[in-house]
Structures are given as structure tokens and as C-alpha cells.
Amino acid sequence: MNYDMELKEKIAAQNSQSVQKKVVIDLRDLRKSFGDNHVLNGFNMRLYEGENLVVMGKSGSGKSVMIKCLVGLMQPDSGYIEVLGKEIKTLDRETLDILRSDIGFLFQGSALYDSMTVRENLEFPLRRHKERMGQNADTEPLVLEVLENVGLAHAIDLMPEELSGGMKRRIALARTIILKPKIILYDEPTSGLDPITSKEIIELMRSIQKKYGTSSLIITHDVDCARVVSERMVLLVDGINYAEGTYTELSSSNDPKVEAFFKK
């Protein structure tokens, strides 16, 4: 924990030094409804380069909808979305695919391809992005590297059904980082895992962030996860960015809607 505080202070100090922080994701006035179900009602958020931002909200509050809009998996009803300096709405398929290779997406339920082995799962993102690495590049070292990173090199020839929930999440994380993305979006990285495995996944997220220097957007309703990984937090309530601040600031707030998140 001590180490945590140190790291956070260091990053906070760095951040305050560089006044001009680069914005990697800019969301403005995002709105999305499904029929009468108004999920997002003008959500705003910015992710700065190298930072760990946690967006917290109850289940069903529209967190997944929000990040799906970010990568163009869902079209918002209105609003401005800019990722790495490009407005998502204006991109054609080709450019969007290229942009997407800079964005890692860890899905809520891991989303491993269950008809493929671990190796094939990891090779899949490389199919279209081989140009980046050179057409004839041998993918084996890359696959092994990310597997080493998540500590599962021995699982390379297993099928997803042979893996435990925690292992699946690690493989999914490995698949997310295989293209060395600049931004990683985590959709509830610890959901459905026991507390110990959750901790391991969080550790892994932090070591990956340190190693590759990615900017991370972490979506969660898990307060413990938020406490450990967040440098800054946004609370998603009633479809808007209801409150923002550090974990310490928000957890000592008196606003009942904010307090509700931190009550045990």
C-alpha cells in the first residue's frame, strides 16, 4: 500500500508539472437511448496520456454502452467522440481498423474464441495487422512474449474451455496487449472473479501499464479495484458524469449518490 501511495504521488507530481497533458480520448455530450430506456444523457469524459482513469457506475448504468461507442461497436444518438486525435464518426472502415489496433479492449466476460486454441486466439488480432509488423513476420515470439507477461506460457495449446475463469481473463488480457495498444479499455476486468484472482488481475494490469506505458480506461463497479488502480475517477450516475476526482476525494464526499458507491 505504501508503494501505491508513492507511485500515485509521483505520477500526480509529474502530471502537475506537465501542464499541457495530451488528451487521448475526448467524449463530449454523449447520448444514447434504446427506445424509452435513456442510458446516456450527456456524458463527458477525458482520458489523458499515460493515466489510469476509472469510470464507476452501477450495473446497467451504461458503462459498457459508453466504451462500445468509443470503439465504434455502437453508434451513439449524438455526441462527439475523439480517440487519439481522430473523430470516430468520420472514419471509414479501413481507417477505423487501423485506429482500433491502437486500442486494446478487454471484454467483460473475456470473450475468448471458444473454437480456437489459446495460440490461435492470440494470433487472431495479428491477422489483419501484420502489415504493421511486416507481412512475413513470425508471430510466435509475440505470442510467447504476451503469454510470459501474463504467466501462462504453458497454456499455449489449451482450449478456452480447459481454462479457469482467472486464466481466461489473463489470456484475454494477453490478446488485448498483443498489438501493443496505446490505450487499453477494460470492461469490468474483475467481474465474476474471486477476490484473490481479482487482485492478481489488478496486479497484472498495473505491471502491463508500467511495461508498455499505456493509457487505461477502467470500467468497474468494484470499489476495491477502483481504489487500487485509479489515479482519477469519474462516476457515471443517471447517464451523466455525475462526479469526478481522486478516490480519496470522492470517498469522503457527502453527496448521497456518491456516498452510495463507497458504503460497505
Binding site: 461497436l73 470473450a111 471458444d114 491477422r127 490478446r175
Partner: peptide, 21 residues
């Protein structure tokens, strides 16, 4: 059933974001 379960477990979304149509 196969595509349905790929859909609900977000495998289809995962393909989409990894650049394969």
C-alpha cells in the same frame, strides 16, 4: 447456436475490434 453464443459472449465484438470483419 454457434453464432448466437458468440454474439452473447461478445466474441463477435472482439473480432470486430481486432480488425477482422
Amino acid at each position: 447456436a454457434e453464432l448466437g453464443s458468440m454474439k452473447v459472449t461478445e466474441q463477435i465484438d472482439a473480432m470486430e475490434v481486432s480488425g477482422t470483419n
